[in-house]
Design a protein around this nucleic acid. Structure first.
Length: 368
DNA sequence: AATCGACCCAACCGCAAAACT
DNA sequence: AAGTTTTGCGGTTGGGTCGAT
């Protein structure tokens, strides 16, 4: 015997919330809390809304101490570094940014940050987003002000100007900001619930390609800026096409690469040598799509592990791949069904740094 | 002034995991 | 233990706004 059925979907309102609905929901939750049951909540309040919708409205809009729009450069950096590290786990990313919701971050990433990261220039600067943000904040502040929070309006005025400044900065610096030290993130332990054969991580055969496609699809010389700190595409001296991603967090980094023709390439020497060395030898001006660059038939089988969550790949030679991780090595799966080793560290640099690291080597099946 | 396309974001949808009976 | 509901999450969509033509 289960619970009572969810809301009557035929009798619920959809679409934008009215100020009255907002007020009802906010007032009730502030007085009584959610009661641990979102589904029953709208009936108690007298709202013709689905409980799910109420929850979303509260979490993304009504709950106190939320900030909308006006993402700072530091927040940009955090979002980018986390996205590259853990993918689209917006709730985890949002947990690192107080006052931000996963939905906000997701929208921000999809509409602006991704393009910024890829250096896709907008034809003309648009201020609309910030305008809306400011409008939103003014609206929020008015509401707070009416609730007796006298600090809100001045805060909004300040944010408005900083928002405009931020927009101007964005316009002047459309590419990934250079010379920025990624923050050291006090991340919680991120569980690794997936093996290489399951789950939404970068683990399946096409995951790397998907990531690249997700991050822009075509790497056109018109758009791509080789100076991006954090995402590099390059030709090696042998003319092999290399995709290379790095996460630069504090003094640590994680890196990966893809190479056509069954060869793994990692910088000019094939050895991990730190972030600065990863920036070497960029040519960057090429136009083929990833499909053209790296035919799927030429993927090195097993390379999908390179993007397993949190794993750090440090060294690839002709016959071995060396990874390091902290003492919390937890997952081992097969490389060629028998020999691949997957590791993850339980957080990013701030935890990784200073910890005793295990060093593992194992055979790369494509080489003898 | 009208139209079009790009952009933005609130909200919905579907799925999986957790919680509950 | 099994079945059902609830919660939480990420992907997607639809409508409003704005600038360009």
């Amino acid at each position: 015997m289960g619970r009572a059925p969810c809301c009557d979907k035929a009798n619920v309102k959809k679409g934008p919330w009215s100020p009255e609905e907002d007020a009802k929901l906010k007032s009730y939750i502030e007085k009584h809390g959610t009661g641990g049951n979102w589904i029953a909540l709208p009936q108690k309040i007298g709202l013709k809304r689905c409980g799910k919708s109420c929850r979303l409205r509260w979490l993304n809009y009504l709950r106190p101490n939320l900030r909308h729009g006006g993402f700072s450069e530091e927040e940009d950096n955090i979002i980018c570094s986390l996205y590259i590290s853990i993918g689209s786990r917006w709730s985890v990313i949002a947990a690192q940014l107080p006052g931000r919701t996963d939905n906000d971050i997701k929208n921000y990433w999809n509409t602006r940050l991704k393009k910024k990261l890829l250096g896709k220039h907008r034809r003309e600067p648009r201020n609309r987003g910030n305008y809306n943000s400011v409008k939103q904040e003014i609206s929020d502040a008015n509401r707070r002000s009416s609730d007796g929070d006298s600090s809100s309006l001045s805060m909004v005025q300040e944010n408005s100007s900083t928002s405009q400044q931020h927009h101007q900065q964005q316009h002047q610096q459309l590419c990934w900001p250079q010379n920025i030290n990624m923050p050291v993130l006090p991340l919680p332990i991120i569980p690794l619930p997936y093996t290489t054969s399951q789950g939404p991580g970068f683990n399946d055969q096409d995951s790397i390609k998907k990531l690249l496609i997700k991050l822009g699809g075509r790497f056109s010389g018109d758009y791509y800026q080789p100076t991006l700190d954090g995402l590099n595409l390059q030709f090696s001296s042998q003319g092999q096409q290399v995709y290379q991603e790095q996460v630069h967090v504090g003094s640590s980094s994680s890196s990966a690469c893809i190479v056509a023709n069954n060869e793994v390439h990692f910088g000019q020497t094939g050895q991990y040598s730190g972030v600065d060395d990863m920036m070497q030898g960029q040519d960057g001006n090429f136009t083929p799509s990833f499909e053209e660059m790296v035919p799927s038939s030429n993927y090195s089988d097993g390379l999908e592990f390179l993007y397993n969550e949190g794993m750090i790949l440090h060294k690839i030679t002709d016959s071995t791949i060396t990874t390091t991780c902290d003492q919390n090595t937890t997952t081992t799966t097969n490389w060629d069904e028998t020999t691949t080793s997957i590791y993850h560290h339980d957080s990013l640099a701030s935890h990784f740094e200073g910890q005793e690291c295990a060093l593992q080597e194992f055979s790369y099946p494509g080489a003898q």
